[in-house]
Design a binder for these strands. Structure first.
Lengths: 102, 102
DNA sequence: CGTGTAAGGAATTCTGACACG
DNA sequence: CGTGTAAGGAATTCTGACACG
């Protein structure tokens, strides 16, 4: 949707933006912590959101967390976010039905 | 500042995003219509703003405009924008001085 | 488990030039 | 003027493996 989610950044740039080595970035992909796109030739393409995630991952790794724990944590965060979004949509429906302004 | 201005996209991706050939993009740079950054190795890096500019340029070229005309037009637009920004800042100062809410 | 590294190859990008118009 | 293309080389990225721990 927005620029933040467009997968357009190659790994070298991502490495610079995050301070992580290319090796680390590829490993985190292997562990399913990030899911870059690929060009036809096979070159990885990342989004700014991926870059943010990687910085977050880097912090968690520094705190001694392991990749599988980080993966779990991210999934739970997503659940929470989805739940919130759903609630807000329902509230929106209700407000619309009663023609209420917030 | 924002993601829109970060120079992180290589020419192949820009080509896909804009529909322009790499040749065209390099030529527009030569004519100073865009100013990508470079990696240490010399590879060009573009921003999303550059991509937007290129799409705009492509439209103007289709309309038969020449590169030097486009360059001029962009400069004038920038002037107009800067003038507007300046006016708004001055208004901001005045409002602050008189403690006025808009 | 997480990361560095050397290895060999493939994809990507670069420049300068010639061509056409 | 604007753009395509073939040419040769350089920078970038890729994978699978070995190493250490």
């Amino acid at each position: 949707m927005s620029y933040k989610d467009k997968k357009v950044i190659t790994i070298g740039i991502v490495s610079e933006l995050t301070g992580l080595s290319e090796r680390q970035i590829r490993y985190y992909e292997e562990r399913k912590l990030i899911l870059p796109d690929r060009t036809k030739g096979g070159t990885r393409k990342f989004s700014f959101l991926d870059v943010e995630r990687l910085i977050d991952i880097a912090n968690k790794m520094e705190d001694g967390m392991q990749t599988f724990e980080i993966r779990k944590m991210e999934k739970e965060e997503k659940k929470r976010t989805d739940r919130k979004t759903r609630d807000q949509m329902i509230r929106g429906q209700i407000n619309a039905a009663f023609n209420i302004r917030k």
